[in-house]
Design a protein around this nucleic acid. Structure first.
Lengths: 130, 130
DNA sequence: GTGTTTGCAAAGTGTTTGCAATTTA
DNA sequence: TAAATTGCAAACACTTTGCAAACAC
């Protein structure tokens, strides 16, 4: 069963091509829509940028990707690492790096009001070149 | 000595009006450029939206405001609370709430690579209505 | 066959910029 | 008066949308 089927997504060429770029080797990536689009073009795949955006959005809905946007990032990055984890954002280079789970001692989160519940928590540590 | 002088900013009408909206009562706020613009208009002050953006940007440079942008926020919010603190972001309402300093047990941050140093760290806890 | 997805271009949104006119110090 | 700031409109960059054609199942 393919990843796409598993995620409940119909198998189409654009989705296959994009999934191949994202999940080919099991490595975790942070990619923007533009980057994916660029890689598709380099390999001769003609897929509209709008389709890349839409496809990535559907991958997010389907739980295959995690969107990250933060001040200092020009565009939304899509993270293939779905495990809860946090990020370093290097302000000098714009580079986003995973912080392995467990390295952030965040075991006791404050409680929101009684009428709401915690969905997720995201820590971004901004760094700069020394 | 006025806040603007203190921040090393030349005193101009637009800056005074905007500072008045932001810092009038010493309360902390999260405001967007549009909101400030709206308040200016309500009180008959004719200041261009672009000027509001530019002015808020200069307030940030001068250390009077802290910009916050996160997925789920349509626009950048400017926080008058310059003390290190974190936020709840209610995904249902879009509302951003301060988490008082000390309520997040974040005393041991992971270290970035040797060639970079930590500038700041920002935690956003996403919540939703129960 | 039928409902979904794509491609494309166009619209949308938040934000920045260029430059002449104005204001500040 | 010299330098900084404003206003305005136009430019910008990222992202979404509308709709007809193509495709998956």
């Amino acid at each position: 069963m393919s990843l796409l089927e598993f995620a409940g997504l119909r198998i189409t060429q654009p989705r296959l091509q994009i999934a191949r770029i994202l999940f080919a080797d099991g490595e975790h990536r942070h990619v923007s829509a533009e980057q994916v689009y660029g890689q598709l073009q380099m390999t001769g795949k003609r897929i509209a940028l709008a389709t890349v955006y839409n496809t990535l959005g559907r991958f997010v809905d389907a739980g295959l990707l995690h969107p990250i946007s933060a001040r200092g990032l020009d565009a939304t990055l899509f993270d293939t690492n779905m495990a809860p984890h946090h990020h370093f954002l290097n302000e000098t280079t714009g580079e986003l790096t995973d912080i392995p789970e467990g390295e952030v001692p965040l075991d006791l989160l404050p409680k929101p009001g009684d009428d709401s519940e915690i969905l997720s928590c995201e820590l971004v540590i901004r760094t700069q070149a020394k």
